[in-house]
Structure formats: structure tokens, C-alpha cells
Design a protein around this nucleic acid. Structure first.
Lengths: 326, 326
DNA sequence: GACCCTAGCTAAACCGGTTTATCTCCGGCT
DNA sequence: AGCCGGAGATAAACCGGTTTAGCTAGGGTC
């Protein structure tokens, strides 16, 4: 099976290749009569322009890129990213080029390669590091990019984020209002910018707080929880940096015979089916809408808009059965 | 910033474009001396071939495609697909072009477009329908494709699947061995091939069975469960077609005051964190490995291997707290 | 009538590769 | 010496578009 090309249309319509190109792209230089004839021929022939060829003439690649740095196995449990991707898709007419790599170096190399190969019109940057080399890279390459969830402004790039600082503060205030004093936090990866933000907010609003590092896995959540509950003055409330760790923590508490929320209050960051089912109080944000917003921002930048920062609505605390007065 | 092209290398090495192409692709026609000089120049210049340009000359697009037909919102909860995608990625050196569309027609149009645009070297076909038009389409287009989870052989296409029939039979046999007679099934979408397979297996191994249709959502699972439990001779065991519906069903049972597993046994198809946490007996398959296997099959077909069928290992029944004797 | 403009179109170059036809040179064979 | 063959390289065509330079015809100006 052979696809019709611009040449076929030119021949069928009795005009030149150039005229067809002008007509199809709605540009001036051809008469309305010719344009309509070309369009008609194109549609009867079922013509579809080849992005490949078009991209070659330094036009659009009709795709945007997303690189995830993860051990592939771990990815499947992180509903967050899938929600995010689904949301992005909802606002994009173009395709998403997705690749999972296992190191930051590979990620950078891949972005460079995609750029060099004219494969993408722009990219999303997720999991922003404290001083992330990617920000510089994008500027240097001139590759349109949107920082997703990077809490704040980043160089010349557009940014879409939620205020982790305010959110953490509101969680702590909520717990304090219930009478909690000894509040603990099971944090995420320390290299990530939002972890630092949450750390800062936590430190400044909690008087008697302790932070344990985690890595978003159930094992880390369980281990951190055991550690916290074994302390002399054990905390009366724990805030987890994601849902998986929170659920694991809840199970540890149950296995130790601790009543939730009577003896221990639990809050999860990021809501999910897991939290809903486990009846955990969670900081809920609409990840799907967040992804959609990021996609809109990227499309705008690609279309030549000057990069802007979009602050997402503050995550909302959904109170379920896992939090209560001391 | 400007990236080096094959022309720059040719100039720097003092040879022609053609020679550079031959040298870089390890083909004969250039002396070893020239080849090594070209390679050296290329590496010092940081040369990266443009897939775009290469694809134009009807070579590889260095990407494979996957189209999902879903309401985007619903996608985020389906860990299955994300696991699958993660697994695919683990075995592919090329990128995955992912797009979510909302109708079967759009899906077909997209496959055709990707083919016409030389965007992908091959595609995955998921959610196979009973007599799926895509199978014909791929053959007609000559686009390498692998049917994923399509239970059996499909025209000229390679296929990677698990034996749903045998799996369903084993689940039913297990329940029968516990003494269950009235067994119900909450099925998935009737248009999907694997639903039909499971239906057939269920019908032939259960004597006194009843099937209710669902659509994989929690709501459908709850509704179906209520319906089943309201029957005169209510079932003593229910097999759900996915984890989300099973968990919802378990909650309905709990809300009706029915003890699980004493009064009702529950089995979920597809294991997940949700099942683990809800302590549901589940039919577990390694979706990640499944995706990896599918990717290997697609890579092989793209490389010119003749399409083969790969049967995945039988899903394993992980018995947890939700099943027991009548 | 000479001149200039512009609309409307074509031919051709270009993007960055691959591939084919062609050309040159050199060695081996009769 | 004359012929053939093959290795090694180059020029040029090609893929399917975009873009630019250039050509032509028609209309307005003076």
C-alpha cells in the first residue's frame, strides 16, 4: 500500500508541489480557486502530510517528550505519573514520546538526543532536583520546556506547580488544631526540590518534629514507621510523603496494636484509591488536571508564548478516618 | 546552538556525504582507514544522526506506538497499563509513542496516520476485540504489530498472550474444591476478546453460575455485587474481572454485614497493591514481564523475524484472606 | 507606450540523511 | 600491451515536505 504524497496531489490537481504546499497550509500565494481544488483533491486522495518530512524542514515534530528516571519495575505502582500522563494527553493533540531511563545522565543525554534529532517540539521536566542541570540545558538548547511540580520559578522556563510549602503548613496546622505536638514526617527523596520545600515548611511550623527519610516504597514507609514508633517519646501523628508509604505505615501501626487515629494519626500526601480504601486522611490534588495544565503550558510555549508560571490550586486535605484528636 | 550534520563531518574528514553514511553504518564501500577517520571526526564533533531525516529515506523511525482507547480520566486508576508500559520500556531501546484517544475510530485513524507519517516502526495492539478490524489493517498496511493479551493467534500478526481460559478454569476448580457451587462472575467489557474467553471457560466449568457485566470501574463492581447479593439464591463466591471491581465488591459485602470469606468468597483477576492491601485472593500475573515479552516480540518482528505466538505463563492464584470453604 | 506593481504560479534549492550510478585507479591475467 | 574486475570513492538522485527566487500576465500611472 502506498500513501499519496504532495507530488501526487500536485499532479492530480495540475499544479506544482509548491502551490500545493501553500494551499494546504492556508498561506497566501495561491488563488482561492486553486486552493479549493487542491484541498478537494487532497481529501479525495486521503492525503496525510508526513510529519517526518515536515520536521526535516525544521518545522514541527508534532510530539512532546517526557523522560522518567526510575527503576522500571517501581514505576507501575506510582499511579501519580500515570494520572499525570493521562491528564497531559487530554490537552494535547500531538503524541507523547515517553521513555524510562535509569539514571540522570541517561535522561540528560536523551533530552539532548531528542533535540538533536528533531524528535520533539518540547519536553516536560519532572522530579526537579535542587539545582537541576536540566534547566540550564533547555535554555542552552532552546528547547521549549515546562517544569512540572517544581515549586517555583526556574530560569527562563515555564513552570507549573503546587505550593508544597503552604500545603505542608496547612497539614501541620490541622494536626496542631487537633492537639498534636509531637509530629513526625516520613520524607521522600532528599534530592528532589519539593522534598526540600516540604522539609522547610515542616521545620518552621512544627515545634517538636522529627523527619525520617524514605524513598516512596512500601518498605521504606514501614521501616520509617517502625523507627518512629520505637522512639521514647513517640510521635502522635505522622505525615507521609506519598500514599504507598502511608498505607504501609498504617499497617505497621496496626500490627503493633496501635489504634488509628486514637493513638496515632496518619496523613498521606497524594490521594489515591489506596487512601480511599484504607480510609486515610490525605492531601488530595487533582493530578489529572495538573497534567492537563502542564500540557497547556507546554503547548503555549511551543506556540511561541513567553514562558509563564502557573500555580496550581492548593492541594485539599481530605479528612478520613486516620486522623483525630490526641 | 547548531548540531553537526553529515555534511559537516564530510567536510571535516575531507570525504563525501555518501562515504560518511557508508562509514557510519558499517557498510562496505569505504576503506578501513577512511572509516576510522570518519568515526573519529564524528565522535569529536558529537554527531548524532537525525532520525527524522533517516526515516524519510524509508529507514527506521526508532519508535513504536501504543494507542489506548479510554476516557483519559479512567486511565489513571488502571495500574495494569502502566505496569505493561513500564515492562515494554525495559526491553526497548527506542521510544514509545503513546496516545490516548476516545474512540475506536480515532484509534484506527491514528494507526493509519502514524504509518503514513513514518512515525513508528511498529505498534502494540491491546484490548483486542472479538473480530478486531485492526488485525486486518496491520496486514494491509504492512505495519509490524504485536497483539498483546489477545488470547490466541491473529491473522498474520505476532501475539503474546496468557491463557485466560485455563486460568478461569483453575479459579473455578479452586472454588469448587472449597465446596462452592453457586459461583458468580462480574465480567469486563463484553466486546473484548478476553472477556469472551473467560465467559466461555466460566460457563463450561461452573454448573450453577451467573454472570453480570461490568466495565472495570469501582461503581460497576459495587452495583454488580449488590445485584448478585440481592438474589434469592445468592452466590457463595464471586470472581471479578479486575482488582478495582473486586475491592469495591468486598466493600459492598462488608457494608451488608456479610463476612468474607465465611459467607462470601472473593477472587480478583489481576493482582495489585489494592488486592495486597485488601487481602484479596487474586489471580496474579507479572504484567511487567508480560510487557517486556511483548516488546521483545515486537522488536523481533520489526527486525524481520516471522511473527510468532508467545504464550505467557499461566497467571498464578495468590490465595489471601478473601477465599475459604463455604 | 513605457514603466512599475502585484497576484499567482512554477522551478529549484534545501532539510539530512540513504542509495544508486558512475568514475578512477590499480592489480592480475592472457 | 591489452583487457577485465574490483575496491574505493564521488556525484547525484531521492525521500516528502517547505521556502525562496524568478517568471508571467494583467492592471494602474504618468
Amino acid at each position: 500500500m502506498k500513501r499519496p504524497t504532495i507530488k501526487d496531489i500536485a499532479a492530480a490537481a495540475g499544479v506544482s508541489k509548491g502551490a500545493v504546499s501553500l494551499a494546504l497550509n492556508g498561506r497566501s500565494g495561491v488563488s482561492e480557486l486553486t486552493r479549493s481544488r487542491v484541498l478537494e483533491v487532497a481529501s479525495t486522495l486521503g492525503y496525510r502530510p508526513s510529519v517526518t518530512a515536515r520536521a526535516l524542514s525544521s518545522a514541527s515534530a508534532d510530539a512532546v517528550g517526557l523522560v522518567l528516571v526510575r527503576p522500571p519495575r517501581a514505576l507501575g505502582d506510582e499511579a501519580f505519573f500515570f494520572q499525570l500522563i493521562a491528564g497531559m494527553q487530554s490537552e494535547m493533540s500531538c503524541a507523547l514520546l515517553l521513555q524510562v531511563v535509569d539514571s540522570r545522565e541517561a535522561e540528560i543525554a536523551l533530552y539532548q538526543r531528542w533535540w538533536a534529532e528533531h524528535r520533539v517540539d518540547g519536553v516536560f521536566l519532572v522530579d526537579l532536583l535542587v539545582s537541576d542541570p536540566r534547566v540550564e540545558l533547555m535554555s542552552a538548547l532552546g528547547l521549549p520546556a515546562v517544569v512540572v511540580g517544581g515549586a517555583g520559578h526556574h530560569g527562563e522556563l515555564a513552570s507549573v506547580w503546587a505550593d508544597d510549602y503552604a500545603a505542608m503548613t496547612s497539614v501541620v496546622e490541622y494536626l496542631k488544631s487537633l492537639g498534636h505536638q509531637r509530629i513526625a514526617r516520613v520524607a521522600g527523596l532528599a534530592s528532589l526540590l519539593h522534598t526540600v520545600r516540604r522539609d522547610a515548611a515542616f521545620a518552621s511550623s512544627v515545634v517538636d518534629g522529627v523527619v525520617v527519610a524514605g524513598d516512596y516504597t512500601a518498605e521504606a514507609g514501614a521501616r520509617a514507621t517502625r523507627e518512629l514508633l520505637a522512639m521514647d517519646a513517640r510521635p502522635t501523628a505522622i505525615v507521609y510523603d506519598n500514599d504507598v508509604m502511608a498505607v504501609a505505615g498504617a499497617e505497621v501501626a496496626a500490627s503493633l496494636g496501635l489504634a488509628v487515629p486514637a493513638e496515632l494519626s496518619i496523613v498521606a500526601w497524594d490521594d489515591s484509591v489506596l487512601c480511599q480504601h484504607g480510609r486515610l486522611t490525605a492531601l488530595s490534588r487533582d493530578t489529572f488536571a495538573f497534567g492537563a495544565r502542564a500540557a497547556r503550558a507546554l503547548v503555549a510555549v511551543i506556540d511561541g508564548a513567553s514562558p509563564t508560571d502557573v500555580e496550581d490550586v492548593l492541594p485539599e486535605l481530605v479528612v478520613r478516618g486516620s486522623t483525630g484528636p490526641v
